[in-house]
């Protein structure tokens, strides 16, 4: 309940800054629109590239954009700041997890953005309705939803881990930027992984980024080879990443300097 209350309070706060919400949505929409147009140019007169048709590209980037709102909460900088500025002091003495708090606050903000973005996404989907083709069975839909949920958990753990590196590095934005670059390249946000050079695909298999976006979006497109196996890998990456996070958190707390009075 305490995190639900935090979620509601954040929404109350964010509603006071309407202009920010709109600008953020415009910023978020630019990249996928550009990517769709770029792939249309690449496609030219061809019906497909690497197994992706026009409809697949539109669906892919719509799913990535939608997934970005649902899955990705970029709260590492919030945690980094809380550590750097000592803002964590008050939370650390309460029965309240500061990392979960930042995650919930980011998700609340994203939820509002999603509500505003949904009509835009609906209009875009309607415009390209002849291209957008999603035909999944009940089981596939269920597995896709599970995969999106697992992707969201994995993304949150990666963000939390980057955030708490501030115990050592103080400024974590270069690490956060690097992680985002990896998410673009190895996570399939920039382009479907299967269209990337084989080297990238091999490296991506051993990194967690692929299991955040690419795996669930592929399932949505019906392109997942072995959905159960991919879900299993998502779980394994969650367990491993959470283990690493826990070790860093415990070691980090011992280094925490709690700046300020």
């Amino acid at each position: 309940m305490k995190y639900w209350r935090t979620f509601l309070l954040t929404i109350q706060t964010e509603l006071q800054y309407r202009a920010n919400l709109v600008l953020w949505i415009i910023e978020g929409a630019i990249a996928p629109v550009v990517m769709v147009l770029a792939w249309f140019v690449v496609l030219g007169n061809r019906s497909e590239v690497g197994g992706y048709t026009r409809g697949d590209f539109i669906t892919y980037y719509l799913a990535v954009t939608f997934g970005w709102y649902v899955v990705a909460g970029t709260f590492s900088q919030m945690i980094g700041r809380a550590i750097k500025m000592g803002e964590m002091n008050i939370t650390l003495v309460k029965p309240y997890n500061v990392v979960l708090e930042k995650m919930v606050r980011e998700q609340a903000w994203k939820f509002i953005s999603l509500l505003i973005a949904l009509p835009i996404l609906a209009v875009v989907t309607y415009m390209f309705r002849s291209y957008v083709t999603v035909s999944l069975s009940g089981v596939q839909i269920f597995m896709t939803m599970v995969s999106f949920a697992l992707g969201a958990i994995l993304f949150a753990i990666i963000e939390a881990t980057i955030g708490i590196l501030a115990f050592w590095f103080v400024e974590i934005w270069p690490i956060a930027d690097t992680s985002m670059a990896c998410m673009n390249v190895f996570g399939g946000m920039l382009a479907p992984l299967t269209l990337m050079p084989i080297f990238f695909q091999r490296v991506a298999a051993y990194l967690p980024f692929k299991y955040v976006f690419f795996v669930p979006v592929s399932m949505l497109l019906g392109k997942g080879d072995n959905a159960s196996f991919e879900l299993g890998l998502q779980v394994i990456f969650i367990v491993v990443c959470f283990g690493i996070y826990s070790l860093i958190w415990r070691a980090g707390l011992k280094r925490y300097e709690g700046i300020g009075g």
Binding site: M1, K2, W4, R5, T6, L9, Q12, T13, Q16, G86, E87, N89, I90, K94, P95, Y96, G260, G261
Partner: peptide
Amino acid sequence: MGQKNQLWWDLPATDAFLLNKEI
């Protein structure tokens, strides 16, 4: 702490009290 607060800057203090009630 005199210089670190737990209240929510943009909301009335009662909201922070209710959050503490849950916490």
